[in-house]
Simulated assay, not measured.
Amino acid sequence: MRNPLPAVARALGTRSWLLRLATVVVWADARLHRLTRGRVSLVGIAGLPSLRLTTLGRRSGLPRSNNLLYYPDGDEYVVTGSNWGKPNDPAWTFNLRAHPDATVEVRGKALPVRARELKGREYDLMWRALLEFWPGYGMERAVAQRDLPVFVLTPDGSQPDE
Rank of each mutant, 00 (worst) to 15 (best):
P100S: 02
N66D: 13
M126C: 08
R64S: 15
Y77E: 04
R121L: 02
D89L: 04
V78H: 04
S82Q: 02
T93M: 06
K86N: 12
L118V: 00
V104F: 08
A91V: 12
A98C: 07
R114K: 14
A102P: 13
A129Y: 09
A91W: 03
D89Y: 06
W84S: 11
R128K: 06
Y71Q: 09
A110I: 04
V104L: 05
L111I: 08
Y71K: 09
R114L: 05
P63V: 13
R116F: 12
M126N: 02
N83C: 02
H99E: 13
A91H: 12
A91K: 11
R97M: 11
R116M: 10
L68Y: 03
N67V: 15
N67S: 13
R97P: 01
N83D: 10
E105Y: 08
S82D: 03
P112M: 15
P87I: 00
Y71R: 08
W84K: 10
Y71H: 15
P90V: 04
P63T: 14
R64F: 11
D89W: 07
D89Q: 08
G81K: 05
G81A: 13
A98K: 14
D101H: 14
F94C: 03
D124L: 08
K119H: 00
R128T: 08
T80V: 15
R121W: 02
L69S: 01
N67K: 02
L118S: 03
M126V: 03
R128M: 01
H99Q: 13
A110Y: 04
W84D: 08
H99L: 11
Y70E: 02
E76Y: 00
Y70S: 07
F94M: 05
M126L: 03
D101S: 14
E122W: 02
E117D: 02
D73W: 09
L111T: 15
G120K: 02
L68D: 06
L118P: 08
N83P: 11
T80D: 01
V79Q: 01
T80Y: 04
V78L: 10
N88L: 09
A110F: 06
S65G: 11
E76H: 12
D73K: 04
